[in-house]
């Protein structure tokens, strides 16, 4: 076996702050965030692009962090679920709506769901039910049946309250 290629320096902006780490080229953006930067809010699920739990915003667009090598993101800006709240200890309107509408049970999919829904509301402040379902189509949840997540997005966008 040849020696593995040496680690490379990757510098990215995460939630507005410059961050750097020495990583192997095979390190995914997901693993850099979790293992090297200690940001474990982004969840590692399937690690091959199916479940959506690892979704982050890359240059403002939702992507799967498991399907990008960290080295490819050099110089780019990343927003993780830790960066969605307006202040430490506070919740975004969407996060608050997830609590109100019981849009999470085990919480595994929640970071990815929040990223997907945050992006949707940024592009489309009053999405239809169909548009919400399309936006979370790439995120698997094994607890909620999705209905409460759809309700939470409606609630966050000022459309009808959650089921009482």
């Amino acid at each position: 076996m040849p020696a593995p290629p040496p680690p490379v320096l990757v510098e990215i902006t995460v939630n507005g702050a410059p961050r750097r780490a020495m990583v192997e080229p095979r390190t995914t953006l997901l693993d850099m965030l979790r293992e090297h930067l200690g940001l474990t809010g982004t969840h590692a699920g399937c690690e091959h692009g199916i479940c959506g739990a690892c979704s982050v915003l890359l240059e403002g667009e939702p992507v799967r962090a498991c399907c990008i090598f960290a080295v490819q993101a050099e110089g780019m800006s990343v927003t993780t679920v830790e960066g969605l709240a307006p202040a430490r200890g506070a919740l975004s309107r969407l996060q608050d709506a997830f609590c109100e509408a019981h849009a999470l049970q085990c919480g595994y999919c929640t970071p990815g769901m929040l990223i997907a829904c945050h992006d949707l509301l940024a592009r489309n402040p009053r999405p239809s039910e169909e548009e919400i379902r399309e936006a979370i189509g790439g995120n698997l949840c094994r607890c909620t049946g999705y209905q409460q997540i759809v309700d939470a997005v409606k609630l966050a966008s000022g459309q009808e309250a959650a089921h009482g």
Binding site: G49, G52, V63, R64, A116, G138
Partner: peptide
Amino acid sequence: VGHVQTRNR
């Protein structure tokens, strides 16, 4: 094709 997250990349 895939989802928003995959089509973005």
